[in-house]
C-alpha cells in the first residue's frame, strides 16, 4: 500500500518536499507544536482541506503560462523552477495544476529543517510532521526524526506524525524507532464509505491502528465529521466499534468539516455545526469510547 515516492534529486533521504511550515500551532498535538507539512498524499479525499498538498509536481509546465509575473519557469523539460522574489501569491498556478500539486515548493535539505526547528525549540513541546501524507517521504522523515532524537538540544521534543494510516507494517517498524506517537485519521467505518471518502481501502488503516496501539504509540484517532456522511448513528457506532477494539481509551478527536479551501467535489456538504459535533460525541461516548474530545 505504501508508496515511498522519492524526489528525483534525493538519493539518500536527505531532502524533503515541504509544502509549508507552521512554527507555532495549537491544533497539531499537545502543547505548542512546530509543524512541518510534507507535500504529496496517496489518498484522494474530496473533503481535503488542503488539496494543493495532494499532488507532487511532475513538471508538466501548465502553470508557467498562467504566471503573469514569470515567477515560474521551465528551464529544462520536466522541472518547474520557482522564483519567490517575483511571486505575489495570487494562487493561479495552484488553480490550474492538473495534479493538485504546488509548483512553488522546492526540495529542502533535512539539515535546513533541523536548523529552523532549533530556533523554535525553546517555544514548543514537540514537532509534528503532517501533510499531505508524511509517510510517503519515509526516508527523509526517518532521517529528520533521527537527527532530532540524536541532538542533545532537541531530543526532548516530542516527535509525532499526523497520518492517514496507509503505511505498511515494514514502514511502521522503521518509523516507530524514531517517533513518540502517531495521530491517525479514520475517515469512515464502512468499507464502502471509506473508499468513497478517501479512494482507498480501510483495512490497511485498521492494521496501522492495531499496530500503533500494540506498541503504545497511538496518540490520537480523528474523525472528520461530515453531516450526511460520517455523522449518522449506524456509521458512528461502527466507527466506535473499530476504535474500541483497538483501544477504548485512546484519545478521539472530532474535526468539523469546512468547505473553505476544498475542491468542487465537496461543495455538496455544508460546514459541520457545533451541534452535529456534540451529537457525534454523545454517540461515540455512549458506544464505549472513554476519551472523546
Amino acid at each position: 500500500m505504501s508508496l515511498a515516492v522519492r524526489h528525483p534529486l534525493d538519493r539518500d533521504g536527505e531532502i524533503l518536499e515541504v509544502a509549508g511550515v507552521a512554527p507555532s500551532s495549537f491544533v497539531d498535538g499537545p502543547g505548542n507544536r512546530y509543524v512541518l507539512f510534507l507535500q504529496g498524499c496517496n489518498f484522494d479525499c474530496p473533503a481535503c482541506h488542503n488539496p494543493t498538498t495532494i499532488g507532487r509536481c511532475d513538471g508538466c509546465g501548465v502553470c508557467i503560462d498562467v504566471c503573469a509575473l514569470e515567477a515560474l519557469t521551465l528551464p529544462v523539460t520536466g522541472t518547474v523552477l520557482f522564483h519567490p522574489d517575483r511571486c505575489d501569491s495570487c494562487g493561479d498556478c495552484l488553480r490550474v495544476c492538473p495534479t493538485d500539486a504546488d509548483p512553488t515548493i522546492r526540495p529542502l535539505p533535512v539539515d535546513e529543517v533541523v536548523s529552523d526547528i532549533a530556533v523554535h525549540a525553546p517555544f514548543v513541546s514537540g514537532v509534528t510532521v503532517s501533510g499531505g501524507e508524511p509517510t510517503l517521504q519515509l526516508d527523509g522523515l526517518i532521517r529528520l526524526f533521527s537527527r532530532l532524537r540524536d541532538d542533545p538540544g532537541l531530543a526532548h521534543l516530542e516527535r509525532l506524525v499526523d497520518t492517514n494510516g496507509s503505511l505498511d507494517r515494514d514502514g511502521w517498524e522503521r518509523l516507530l524507532k524514531v517517533i513518540d506517537g502517531a495521530m491517525v485519521d479514520l475517515k469512515a467505518a464502512s468499507p464502502e464509505r471509506h473508499r468513497r471518502l478517501t479512494g482507498h481501502d480501510i483495512e490497511p488503516v485498521i492494521e496501522s491502528l492495531r499496530l500503533l496501539a500494540e506498541r503504545n504509540k497511538l496518540t490520537e484517532v480523528r474523525l472528520l465529521v461530515i453531516e450526511g456522511e460520517t455523522d449518522d448513528e449506524t456509521e458512528l457506532l461502527a466507527w466506535a466499534g473499530i476504535v474500541r477494539s483497538v483501544d477504548p481509551s485512546v484519545p478521539v478527536r472530532l474535526m468539523p468539516f469546512r468547505r473553505q479551501g476544498t475542491r468542487p467535489l465537496a461543495r455538496r456538504w455544508h460546514d459541520t455545526t457545533p451541534e452535529a459535533i456534540a451529537r457525534a460525541r454523545t454517540v461515540l461516548a455512549a458506544a464505549g469510547l472513554r476519551n472523546v474530545r
Binding site: 509544502a19 509549508g20 511550515v21 512554527p23 491544533v27 505548542n32 507539512f37 488542503n50 519567490p84 529542502l108
Partner: peptide
C-alpha cells in the same frame, strides 16, 4: 498561531 487544518496561511521556509 493558526493550524493548517483551519487556515493554510503558513510561513514557508521555501517561500
Amino acid at each position: 498561531v493558526i493550524g493548517m487544518e483551519t487556515d493554510p496561511r503558513m510561513r514557508s521556509l521555501l517561500r
